[in-house]
């Protein structure tokens, strides 16, 4: 464990909590892409299958359980509890355009052709593109509430911090996980456009982020 990875996990947890609290307190999921949240729940489900078979540390197990629980709670709030506020008419990204290439690639490029390894690889590749429906929804509506942009900021920051963690681990313990690194870089690149808008618009106290 290093400070970059810890900061990354905290940033990830903060993002998930920001979104969950926003939906719960406003009793609405307007402007939130349910599809992205389902994809994130799928990412955690396929990545943490070793939750009961492999024990890494208390921290690792606790965080996996927390991420699974919070992501499913978010999906539940969107599609069940506050489903009347869900903007399905704006959440129209074709997730099959993400799932098909990700599934194909995880069968082609993996460390071992075993169910657990292929599902882990699937979760890594899927996480890189899971935010697409949400970013697409924002471009479609042309705006995002500031809370939603803070959620996206911490979500994007988490994998950027993981990249720093991978650099650190490469130099200190010669560890590198190429699939995670390549996918993590792609994932962070997808956030760059948002980061630009976030720093130039939201942090200038403009409240909502309206797209040009």
């Amino acid at each position: 464990m290093n400070v970059f990875r810890l900061a990354g996990d905290v940033s990830h947890l903060v993002a998930i909590i920001i979104l969950l609290l926003k939906i719960w307190r406003s009793k609405s999921c307007a402007g939130i892409s349910g599809k992205s949240q389902v994809l994130f729940a799928l990412v955690f489900t396929t990545r943490y299958l070793d939750l009961f078979t492999v024990f890494i540390s208390v921290y690792n197990t606790v965080m996996k359980v927390v991420f699974l629980a919070l992501s499913y709670a978010t999906v539940y709030l969107i599609y069940m509890r506050f489903r009347n506020s869900y903007n399905s008419e704006n959440d129209t990204f074709r997730v099959e355009f993400l799932l098909v290439p990700v599934i194909g690639l995880s069968f082609l490029e993996n460390y071992a052709f075993t169910p657990l390894e292929i599902l882990w690889t699937f979760s890594i590749f899927l996480e890189a593109v899971a935010i697409m429906p949400q970013l697409f929804m924002i471009t479609k509506t042309g705006e995002a509430e500031s809370i939603t942009t803070h959620y996206l900021f911490f979500l994007g920051l988490y994998r950027a911090l993981y990249i720093a963690n991978w650099v650190w681990r490469y130099h200190t313990e010669s560890f590198y996980d190429l699939i995670a690194i390549v996918s993590g870089v792609v994932q962070t690149i997808f956030f760059c456009d948002f980061f630009y808008l976030y720093f130039t618009r939201v942090l200038r106290g403009r409240g909502k982020m309206t797209l040009p």
């Binding site: 990875r5 996990d9 990830h12 070793d50 492999v54 890494i56 540390s57 690792n60 965080m63 996996k64 991420f67 460390y111 882990w120 993981y162 963690n165 010669s174 560890f175 590198y176 996980d177 190429l178 699939i179 995670a180």
Partner: peptide, 10 residues
């Protein structure tokens, strides 16, 4: 060094 993909990361 060989790629060791030990799954200790979240």
């Amino acid at each position: 060094q060989e790629e060791n993909n030990m799954k200790d990361e979240l």
